Amino acid sequence: MHSGPAPELLTKRSLVAVSHAIEQAALATAEDGPLLVMALFQRMPYLERELPVWARIAATAAVTVVGVAGQRLEALPAGLCGVALGDSEDLAREWSVIALTPRFGAALVAYDRAEVEPAATLESGRLFEGRWAFRRDEALHEALRLRERLAERLPAPVRAAVDDVLLRVRDLPATPGETRGEAALRLVFSRAERAVRARRATGPDGGAVTAKGGPTLLDEPGMRRWTDADGVTASGTLPVALVGVRVDEPPGVPERLGRRTTGREAQALIRAVTAPLRPVDRAVRLTDQEYLLILPSLTEEQAVAVAGQVHEAVAGLAQSYPFVAFAVHAAVTVTTRRPLPVADVRHAVAWAAREGVPVARLAPESAEAPTGP
């Protein structure tokens, strides 16, 4: 936007709240038409979740345009004009919702940072940079920008309808007092955001299990919930590094160490495997010997460094358990696929153990040909 407050850091959770507010404003009955609504959804699953609402918007608006990257848009509800975006163009990173009439305007424009903050789920913690406003001139500015960027991809009748609304909006001055209403909305949104953050800071991590005396791990159902595998998520957005770890110990260790010592050893091992994790990361215990570290936004080299830290931390256990020689093997990949390619990582870890490779790297996204470090 060309005026108003500076861009701010926004979570997906807050963007959803603002988006829904603009959608409800577009659906409200008012004698201030014609109404132009434009939105960019990044990927199709995010639009599919909202299609019933957007079908209602398209049924009442003069023109409704939505953009999605990664696939052709077909069989959309009547009145909803879909624009296919290229995966590599900057509009594919954008989350935008704009509603505009001669007497009303609201706009949200945010750009995906491909980062996360600690949150109840991986999706809800995604971070964007942008801003929003319930002011007509701000919405007009953003509508003009998208009209220029999408012009050649809009069918001629849709382009003419967009231009008609923009011309009528330009002919009228903005409504006085818009900033008063926006100030009240900002107070409501900021208080709701603080309340959610406070609950998250004190609430348990859903799906987590804790080894006695050790750090918190996710089980596989917990991993599916945290990664939104059964909810609304999409491939092609947030990159996630995966580090699969397998720790084998010589046979006969429980008999030689005794039950109590073996329990302490297991707790120490879990602490070693999870030592490099940041607050946004998660660890999953797949079996007694297998772990999966989920590291949002890390590069492959950074993930390889994490695998090296795990090797060093496990090797350091020899000071406390000198008669136990742990064998550690790991596999690393960075993916934007959803659901996460957990099976591919486990296969690569098994390959690394068979071949005696300390850290295997999976081929980018294909995850079919692990290679040595």
Rank of each mutant, 00 (worst) to 15 (best):
residue 255 E to D: 12
residue 151 A to V: 00
residue 309 Q to T: 09
residue 373 P to H: 06
residue 223 M to T: 01
residue 193 E to I: 00
residue 43 R to C: 05
residue 209 V to T: 13
residue 239 P to V: 04
residue 191 R to F: 14
residue 64 T to F: 07
residue 205 D to P: 00
residue 276 P to V: 05
residue 281 D to Y: 07
residue 4 G to P: 03
residue 84 A to G: 01
residue 105 G to E: 09
residue 210 T to L: 02
residue 35 L to T: 12
residue 246 R to S: 09
residue 350 A to N: 07
residue 99 A to M: 14
residue 62 A to W: 14
residue 338 R to Q: 15
residue 357 V to Y: 11
residue 121 T to D: 06
residue 28 A to G: 09
residue 146 L to W: 13
residue 162 V to R: 15
residue 59 A to R: 12
residue 24 Q to H: 07
residue 239 P to F: 05
residue 234 A to R: 03
residue 222 G to E: 11
residue 42 Q to R: 15
residue 146 L to R: 14
residue 343 A to L: 14
residue 84 A to N: 01
residue 95 W to M: 03
residue 63 V to L: 07
residue 79 G to L: 01
residue 286 L to T: 12
residue 18 V to W: 06
residue 15 L to A: 10
residue 8 E to S: 13
residue 174 A to W: 02
residue 238 L to S: 11
residue 92 A to Y: 01
residue 297 S to E: 13
residue 210 T to D: 03
residue 82 G to P: 00
residue 347 H to T: 10
residue 53 V to E: 08
residue 295 L to M: 13
residue 25 A to I: 13
residue 242 L to Y: 15
residue 333 T to W: 01
residue 275 A to V: 02
residue 161 A to C: 07
residue 294 I to W: 01
residue 100 L to Q: 13
residue 301 E to M: 02
residue 320 S to T: 04
residue 267 Q to F: 00
residue 130 G to S: 05
residue 132 W to P: 05
residue 158 V to K: 09
residue 3 S to Y: 05
residue 107 A to L: 08
residue 127 L to Y: 12
residue 52 P to N: 10
residue 89 E to P: 00
residue 166 L to C: 14
residue 56 R to E: 15
residue 279 P to T: 13
residue 122 L to D: 10
residue 177 G to A: 06
residue 109 V to Y: 08
residue 141 H to R: 03
residue 14 S to D: 08
residue 259 R to S: 08
residue 60 T to W: 01
residue 322 P to I: 02
